[in-house]
């Protein structure tokens, strides 16, 4: 057929519109149906409800450290000595792979609170080891200082500071 009448053209248009509408609706419906199957793998309501942890700071001696669990991860709560604080503040930021002053990493300088997971590949660093008086990750040899900043080794960034607040002088809420 070499020529088409207007009627036939209308027919073709109507058909194309139908096919596009059907395909579009089918795609939208499929996408909507897939969403619950993806969403179900996100944290469930009971997991989210446990997303904050409260820590009582009484009884953590100066110079000692406790590890608490927050959202399934270890969090180091370190009661720093004067010496620790001085060492953390007395650093030339230009020497750091991830420059960050100590004052930005603490609310109260006596207390250093950070997620105890090496920023390299997720191991838990050991306290009191390494070349900088802070932490040392045994997996691939990353050294952290008394502010939890990376100083030497493969880790790309400082240990993460979780969101937390002081409820009063001796209680903090992480998360």
């Amino acid at each position: 057929m070499t020529t088409t009448t207007p009627e036939e053209e209308n027919g073709v248009k109507r058909r194309d519109f139908l096919y596009i509408a059907a395909g579009g609706l089918g795609a939208v419906g499929t996408a909507a149906a897939i969403w619950p199957f993806i969403s179900q793998m996100n944290p469930s309501a009971d997991v989210l409800a446990l997303s904050t942890t409260e820590v009582d700071l009484d009884g953590i001696e100066t110079g000692s450290e406790v590890t608490v669990v927050w959202q399934g991860k270890p969090v180091f709560v370190r009661h720093r000595t004067e010496e620790d604080i001085e060492r953390a503040e007395d650093v030339d930021l230009a020497d750091l792979p991830d420059p960050e002053p100590d004052s930005e990493r603490v609310i109260n300088p006596e207390w250093l609170i950070m997620v105890g997971i090496c920023t390299h590949l997720g191991c838990v660093p050991l306290k009191g080891q390494g070349d900088f008086g802070g932490w040392f990750c045994p997996c691939h040899g990353s050294h952290y200082d008394t502010s939890g900043r990376i100083r030497k080794g493969p880790a790309p960034a400082n240990l993460v500071i979780p969101p937390y607040e002081f409820l009063n002088d001796s209680n903090i809420k992480i998360g």
Binding site: R15, L18, A21, A22, L25, G26, G29
Partner: peptide, 16 residues
């Protein structure tokens, strides 16, 4: 409601 519309469009396509 979505399925009703979908069924309607699919029916039209089927007829066509």
């Amino acid at each position: 409601l979505f399925l009703l519309i979908l069924a309607g469009v699919f029916y039209a396509v089927k007829r066509k």
